[in-house]
Every structure is written in structure tokens, then in C-alpha cells.
């Protein structure tokens, strides 16, 4: 069963004229890590919200086409049930943090309490997540006193704690330093290994190239391309849509422009290093023969 099947889906938010999504045809499989990329206002967040039913069940608007989530029409889902199946981390952690809890520990526990989990289990689960995300120093602090990056980690922790099968994350690392960004992606990769399905929006293309199985590129509410990560990043369609690519992919293109193309176009640093190393070993003759 597919995680989501969208057929001809368009969505226009209430009180707006321009559709946020236009005629999207897309199938997302379970157990993979999908990255949604694209310029601002390209429909990334709306697509995330649709997978979680926030659009159109909470943010109203006009949905046309058909959207099936885990084999069931979106409109046939009970919103509460869908919220348990699909964990959702908002783009702006300031939106997600409840503001009603006085400590980070209670904030992370809030979702679990709402599920009616026994309190000793809640405590266990929160402690695990706190350890995993190295939030020990923050547990006693008031969520409202945290920095942007710290709030983002707490918002992420709250969703991880819920242990949903599917996790949708709108820009998990937008306010994090490189080390924390890597740590978040390592945790996401680990969740995938445990069989979770992950869909995330990310602007840091070097991280996307390293971790995503497949990439969904959007522009102006339309699907530009969906496919395996390296195929998407090396597609001419991306460049034409002003969508960022990994730095090493840009470098490969710059090398091609000055007449020294690599044997193929890399998307990760490791791939780029291998390709350049092979050329360095081969010497000028290997270069010429290409």
C-alpha cells in the first residue's frame, strides 16, 4: 500500500485566488525518505500539510482531484486518527510549541498525555527522546525562553516521542547549526531504518543529496520532477526552475563550462571526490581520452 497517492490534486486556500498546488500526480511509497524541494511559495508546505490532512481539514480551501493517504481517501479519515498515524513537525517551531507548558519535559510529554498513555510510560519515552537529541540541559527550562534552534529541537523531539509510522517534517534544520543539522538527519536516517516513512522539506541540498532516497521538486505549485535523488539533482529541469542543487553538483557544472567536465555529475561530496581522484590518478591522458 502506498503512503500517499495524489491524482490531479489542486488546492486553493480559502480567501486566495492562486492555487497553492496545481494538478499534482504523485505516488509516495512507504519506508522511504522523501525530500520536497523548491523555491519559496512553490507549494512545499502545502504538500506536507495535505499528507497530514491539515489541508483541507484544518486550513480550509478548495481541493480537487483525489488524495489517498495509506489507501484511504483523505476525507474518509478521522482527523484524530490521522494525527496519530502521521507525525507532523511545523516549519516554524514558534507555531508548534504549545505555550501552555512550563518545562521542556512537559512540552515533549504533552502529545503522549493526549494519547492517554500511562504516565510512567510517558516519562520513559520522553527520557529516551531527550537522550537521543541531547536535550538534557534544557528539560527544566521554559520552552518560551529557548533560542530558535533549541525550540526547533524541542518541536522535533515532541513529534519523535509520538512514534508515528509516518513523519512529515517541514524544514527540520532551518535554525540549526551544521552539527545539529547532521545530528537531526542522523536521527531521521535511523527512524527510516526502523521502518518509518519520512517526508521532509529541506533547503540544505548537501544534506538532501546525502540522505534522501527520492526527491520531489515543486515550482509554482506544480510538480517539476520526482525521482531518485541523483536523477533529480542532475536533471536539467531543476536548473531551469531556479531550484538549488548540492554545491558539488554546481561545481561539476562549472567544471563542464570551462571545458573540463567530470565523467558524470556527482551529488554528494564523496562521489565528487571519487570522480576527481580517478581523474587525478589517470593523469592528463585519461582526461584526453574522455
Amino acid at each position: 500500500m502506498a503512503l500517499a497517492t495524489l491524482r490531479g490534486v489542486s488546492f486553493t486556500y480559502a480567501y486566495t485566488n492562486e492555487p497553492a498546488l496545481r494538478d499534482i500526480n504523485l505516488t509516495l511509497e512507504e519506508g522511504l525518505l522523501y525530500a520536497i524541494i523548491g523555491p519559496n511559495a512553490s507549494g512545499k508546505s502545502t504538500l506536507c500539510a495535505l499528507l497530514r490532512g491539515i489541508v483541507p481539514l484544518f486550513h480550509e480551501g478548495e481541493l480537487t482531484g483525489s488524495a489517498e493517504i495509506r489507501g484511504r481517501n483523505l476525507f474518509d479519515w478521522d482527523p484524530a486518527e490521522l494525527s496519530r498515524e502521521i507525525g507532523y513537525v511545523f516549519e516554524n517551531p514558534f507555531t508548534q510549541i504549545s505555550g501552555i507548558k512550563e518545562t521542556v519535559f512537559e512540552e515533549i510529554a504533552l502529545g503522549l498525555e493526549n494519547l492517554g498513555m500511562p504516565s510512567d510510560e510517558v516519562i520513559d519515552r520522553v527520557e529516551q527522546v531527550v537522550e537521543q537529541l541531547e536535550l538534557g540541559a534544557l528539560v527544566a527550562k521554559n520552552p518560551n525562553e529557548l533560542s530558535g534552534g533549541q525550540r526547533q529541537k524541542v518541536a522535533f523531539a515532541s513529534i519523535i516521542a509520538m512514534d508515528a509510522d509516518v513523519i512529515v517534517i517541514d524544514e527540520p534544520t532551518s535554525q540549526l547549526d551544521p552539527e545539529s543539522s547532521d545530528a537531526v538527519f542522523a536521527i531521521i536516517a535511523n527512524l527510516k531504518k526502523k521502518g518509518k516513512s519520512i517526508v521532509l522539506v529541506e533547503h540544505k541540498m548537501d544534506l538532501v543529496a546525502q540522505y534522501a532516497d527520492r526527491v520531489i521538486a515543486l515550482n509554482g505549485g506544480r510538480l517539476v520532477i520526482e525521482g531518485p535523488t541523483s536523477e533529480v539533482f542532475t536533471s536539467p529541469l531543476l536548473n531551469a526552475s531556479d531550484i538549488a542543487r548540492p554545491a558539488v553538483t554546481d561545481l561539476a557544472e562549472a567544471l563542464a563550462k570551462v571545458g573540463r567536465p567530470l565523467a558524470r555529475t556527482p551529488v554528494t561530496r564523496a562521489e565528487a571526490a571519487d570522480l576527481i581522484r580517478a581523474r587525478m590518478k589517470g593523469g592528463p591522458r585519461a582526461n584526453r581520452s574522455r
Binding site: 519559496n40 533547503h203 531556479d242
Partner: peptide, 8 residues
């Protein structure tokens, strides 16, 4: 730059 795309 957080949240900015290529044109941004």
C-alpha cells in the same frame, strides 16, 4: 539565509 531559496 534561513528559509531563502535561490532567487531570495
Amino acid at each position: 539565509t534561513a528559509g531563502l531559496d535561490v532567487p531570495g
